[in-house]
Design a protein around this nucleic acid. Structure first.
Length: 839
DNA sequence: AGCACGCCGACT
DNA sequence: GTCGGCGTGCTC
């Protein structure tokens, strides 16, 4: 009976039309069902980009996730307005990948879509107004004021106007009221115009009209005719010189860039005349934003060690999907990557290589460019949106089969990935923090590889403990490169005790005697120095010397960061800024001074200690512009800088032979960070920066300043004993239940009211405690930063059993609990943020 | 997330 | 009296 009824239902539905579940870029945990109009029925499939109306006003780009015959019961589905392309923009593997990501990282598929599509592929709609055709100013029941009259006049000429047009016509900013009143008076109507944001780059070109190409004698005749007009003759000669049509008639088809002629100082008016007389014609073509470059085919010759590693990797790939390549700095991982990429490409597969953002502008990319030329796409966060869309489309069209890119390039539309490489796999910048999806690109890459049945190679000089653990437990394959390239030697390490120097009065402006001596030596020998301090700005904060008062942000629970520029204090969380007061508001003292050390301050100290040295600084503040980073690198490479002070950034990709001294200003700052990964991170960062010292021939020196130089970690770093360090730290992690022995999930609760935030967090905590999974639950505690942007934060940490079953179960339950909590009216405005594998 | 609907304070 | 504050509810 039931089946029969079901069948009948199916049938009646099938005749009533098809439906599509559409992924929309909104943070709502579901897809939305729309009707497929009969006219679009043949043109729609999974992964197609469509336009739909969402809510009363919004027009959105959506991606078809599913096509079916089941009409929604509770509501009437709206129709799909249009299909944007005749092909799927997003392939089925991508959709599965999105779905996995939403599930694994506890976020909504719309949020994944938002992160995945370059904004150039998302539509924007613009509100425009137009005259109401039924409107007659003479019979209008309402009087119109002056401005309204002006707008209506303008509209009669232009037919339609954007709000911005209205602003410029009236010369005022607040036009909303006027438009609203005109709408009420039924004089105009407002409508939404949908726009594609991506615009291809168009080039103006010039070519001979066809009659001069087909018939050679006509060209001779032409030259004869214009011999009295030298300007025109010059243009024609230039054209024929650039485009030798007489030798190869086909060349004329693509013509010559107009700019070539005008830039060469040819007369534009003569050019116009030639066009007018039908000799030349102007046309437009769509060109790539990326320059064409040929790759070199000079084969890469691997060293014996590299070959060994290569064989090992390939053997491991036979049995494992993922292989960890543990190669110390300067061991030639790049060459190894190149040969593997070439092989994969020759096998007809696509290749994706991930790099941390700061490494992407360097050496590695130019090296790859040399080999792969313009068949390699580069996907960088500093690229414009149009450029990103071109990489996206280049992949769809087959122009690129190899892409190097940052974290977000895992979302590009690959359809046949064969190999993924994650270089500097341990880098924490692979984890996206702030907007959901809070994913880790390395882990997501491994999943993506699985979906494509591709292989993943993780490379690092200092692997993350997670990856090393996976290699040791045989989940991943393992290969190592432990010999430096050429005759490069390991640097000599020096530990400098800051406390002892301070007692002996040898600590000058935060520099120990040893550090100063080594720098001096390098300067005398005309060698370069790198100074590493993991904090930008001048000094972390200011403080009153008399009463200890420290200024704090009004909206967040943090002290304000001091910036020397403008004598200002800023909040790094909400952007609040304030002038440094002249007198302490607590005690009236005027002794307010900067405390702590940032790169800016070190730069200043260095110029006092070494007045003759040329000093530069490299941090977020000096490299914000698109080429700022490259300029600094070039300057340093050219030897125009003696000492370079910097944050993390200097640990990447700098490959200069003349660096002989590397200084770590404050190793304790990294080591005593309140996080279980602090040790691992300190090891990685110090090892990485030390790797910059003394590459070819000359031995380098690394000076590490610390208040407790006797700690074991320093000796492990010095001897390069990653293994022992790992084993020791892992002992701790196992004892105290930290990853990789457990799966961590952090849940934050935010609300503007302290009590509500706390209550909601408690509530959630209790609900989580009831989920039947092996786990340890910590919290809820006030966040490390208790308040951000006037929102109080409480955090619970879940340490879960590692089994995927436990994880899936817990996440599913958690999602349900969260939905239920949000439905309670007390917690309606509370925000819950789930961060899986927080970093 | 946005955006509309709806109920209470300071302005013409 | 109204303009506008943001609490709350919904989006196929």
């Amino acid at each position: 009976m039931e089946t029969l009824f079901g069948d009948q239902l199916e049938q009646s539905v099938a005749s009533s039309g098809s439906f599509a579940d559409i992924i929309l870029p909104v943070p709502i945990p579901k897809m939305f069902t729309y009707k497929i109009p009969r006219s679009l029925k043949e043109e729609i499939g999974i992964g197609y980009r469509v336009i739909v109306q969402f809510g009363k006003k919004k027009i959105l780009t959506g991606i078809v996730g599913k096509v079916h015959q089941k009409p929604p019961t509770a509501y009437d589905a709206k129709p799909i307005l249009d299909v944007l392309e005749s092909h799927a923009s997003v392939n089925p593997v991508q959709i599965r990948f999105w779905a996995w990501m939403a599930q694994y990282y506890c976020c909504h598929i719309g949020e994944v879509m938002n992160a995945a599509l370059p904004s150039g592929l998302k539509l924007s709609s613009e509100s425009k107004i137009q005259l109401n055709p039924t409107f007659d100013p003479d019979t209008c029941a309402y009087p119109l004021d002056e401005r309204e009259e002006v707008l209506l006049k303008a509209l009669q000429k232009k037919e339609e106007m954007s709000f911005e047009d209205c602003e410029s016509v009236l010369g005022i900013k607040s036009i909303h009221g006027i438009i609203k009143s005109l709408v009420i008076k039924e004089a105009v109507v407002v409508f939404e115009q949908v726009k594609e944001k991506y615009s291809p780059k168009v080039e103006n070109r010039i070519r001979l009209t066809s009659n001069f190409v087909e018939d050679k004698s006509s060209l001779e005749k032409l030259f004869h005719e214009i011999s009295t007009k030298p300007k025109q003759e010059e243009i024609l000669l230039k054209y024929l010189q650039e485009v030798p049509v007489y030798r190869q008639a086909g060349l004329n088809k693509n013509g010559l860039e107009k700019k070539v002629l005008t830039d060469a100082g040819m007369s534009t008016s003569s050019l116009k005349t030639l066009i007018k007389n039908g000799v030349l014609e102007e046309f437009k073509i769509i060109v790539s934003r990326f320059e064409d470059e040929a790759g070199s085919d000079s084969p890469i010759v691997l060293t014996h060690k590299q070959l060994e590693a290569q064989v090992k990797i390939k053997e491991a790939f036979e049995k494992k999907h993922t292989v960890l390549l543990h190669g110390i700095t300067g061991s030639g991982k790049t060459e190894l990557y190149i040969t593997l990429i070439q092989e994969a490409l020759q096998g007809g597969s696509q290749v994706l290589m991930l790099l941390p953002e700061i490494a992407l502008t360097t050496h590695m990319v130019s090296r790859l460019r040399q080999v792969f030329g313009s068949s390699m796409g580069v996907y960088h966060s500093k690229y414009s949106d149009n450029e990103r869309v071109e990489v996206w489309n280049g992949l769809l069209s087959g122009k690129f089969s190899f892409v190097v890119g940052v974290r977000s390039s895992i979302f590009l539309p690959f359809d046949s990935l064969g190999l993924l490489i994650v270089d500097e796999e341990h880098e924490s910048s692979y984890k996206q923090y702030d907007p959901a999806p809070r994913f880790h690109a390395r882990d997501a890459a491994i999943m993506l590889a699985w979906l494509h049945q591709a292989k993943t190679l993780l490379g690092s000089a200092t692997p993350s403990f997670e990856s090393f653990y996976n290699a040791r437990t045989d989940k991943y394959g393992y290969a190592s490169l432990d010999k430096r390239y050429g005759e490069a030697q390991l640097p000599e390490f020096h530990l400098a005790d800051m406390l002892i120097d301070k007692k002996k009065n040898l600590l000058k402006l935060d520099f120990t005697r040893l550090m100063r001596e080594k720098i001096q030596e390098a300067l005398v020998n005309q060698e370069q120095v790198l100074i590493f301090q993991n904090r930008r700005g001048y000094a972390p904060y200011v403080s009153c010397e008399d009463c200890g008062w420290i200024p704090e942000c009004e909206h967040c629970d943090v002290s304000l960061t001091y910036h020397q520029f403008g004598e200002e204090m800023r909040c790094h969380y909400c952007g609040f800024r304030e002038k440094v007061p002249h007198v302490c508001p607590g005690c009236g003292s005027s002794k307010i001074s900067a405390v702590g050390v940032g790169t800016e301050r070190i730069e200043e100290s260095l110029s006092l200690l070494f007045p003759e040295a040329r000093i530069a600084r490299m941090d977020l503040d000096t490299t914000r512009s698109k080429y700022g980073y490259q300029r600094l690198l070039d300057d340093f490479g050219a030897g125009n800088v003696d000492i370079l002070v910097g944050t993390q950034m200097i640990t990447k990709g700098l490959d200069f032979d003349r660096v002989t001294v590397v200084g770590v200003m404050d190793a304790d700052r990294i080591l005593y960070f309140p996080d279980f990964r602090a040790g691992e991170r300190a090891f990685q960062q110090i090892t990485q920066v030390a790797g910059r010292a003394g590459r070819r021939g000359k031995k380098g020196h690394v000076v590490i300043q610390s208040r407790r130089p006797e700690q074991a970690i320093f000796h492990q770093i010095i001897s390069g004993d990653y293994r022992n360090f790992y084993l020791q730290e892992m002992g701790e992690r196992q004892r105290f239940f930290y990853p990789p022995f457990v799966k961590m999930i952090k849940v934050s609760t935010r609300h503007k009211d302290y009590k509500t935030a706390e209550r909601a967090a408690r509530h959630l905590h209790n609900l989580m405690a009831e989920i039947q999974v092996k786990k340890i639950l910590l919290g809820p505690e006030k966040g490390l930063i208790g308040k951000i942007k006037n929102q109080y934060i409480f955090e619970s940490v879940v340490k879960l059993d590692r089994s995927s079953h436990a994880q899936a179960h817990f996440k599913q339950e958690l999602q349900q609990q969260l939905e239920a909590l949000q439905a309670e009216k007390d917690f309606r405005s509370v925000r819950f943020i789930v961060d899986v594998d927080p970093y």
